[in-house]
Design a protein around this nucleic acid. Structure first.
Lengths: 129, 129
DNA sequence: GGAGATTTTGACAACCATTTTCATTTTGCC
DNA sequence: GGCAAAATGAAAATGGTTGTCAAAATCTCC
């Protein structure tokens, strides 16, 4: 029974950028979906575990989710003004993380990398304003 | 009046790796310090704002703090079992982040990179256990 | 040195995202 | 249909963090 989970996934796919669990819940309710907040959280966790969505923490500790285009490992380039997100591959970073971990005797290396910046249109907006 | 803030900073400096606000508070109380949890949080925030401590979020959303050895930009290699932390420089990553941002028209690039792994002694402990 | 203004402190309550509980509903299976 | 297992969701609990506000410490100007 994964109807609810699919609905959550669909909602996420229709969204641009990252959305919080609460956002997803609110949006689904507004569209008339009968779903509980608990179920949204559970669906989001399941999807994240399955690698179908990306999770990251905002600076204020809220988890935000995004349907990712590919199931492959990748990182994000996020505009700090408008939230526009680009998925980027970073083989160089993968190798670096492994190497750095290995140098210090660490095993089972994982890493989180997020790149923030101001996107072209926001830069333009700032200069204009 | 920054006695409390210095005390918090000192406690952090005496610690290895990242500690949560609650950890710092507990430790200070155990050492006989008269300080409130609220003040610890405020001190930690002030120190973080001033760049004297590093802040990062654990996977479960808790903020953890560490007195950083240098004011220079650096990253962390954190043992996911014991919390042991190594500061690592990553010129390759810096360059990669800049390049990736530039490719997509982003400016004012910043980035967060955290590498997690299991350190040598914890790996040994796991194998032994 | 002192009165009053200002800042800092901290006990406690409030917040709020997330998780747990548990009774109810739905689904899979025969 | 009927029963067991899984899913659901409302409400309550959790727990880190922040806000409140009165008391205490510190500063300032005289």
């Amino acid at each position: 029974m994964s109807t609810r989970r699919d609905a959550v996934h669909d909602t996420l796919r229709r969204s641009e950028g990252f959305r919080s669990a609460q956002d997803v819940y609110t949006e689904m309710r507004q569209h008339g979906a009968k779903i509980g907040l608990t179920t949204v959280y559970r669906a989001l966790q399941a999807l994240a575990d399955g690698g179908q969505v990306d999770v990251l923490r905002t600076d204020d500790g809220e988890s935000v989710y995004r349907a990712c285009a590919s199931g492959d490992h990748h990182h994000h380039l996020v505009c700090r003004r408008c939230g526009h997100t680009v998925e980027v591959a970073g083989p160089a970073v993968e190798r670096w993380a492994e190497a750095v971990g290995g140098e210090h005797g660490f095993t089972e290396i994982t890493h989180t990398v997020e790149v923030f910046g101001t996107c072209a249109s926001c830069s333009a907006a700032v200069r204009a304003g």
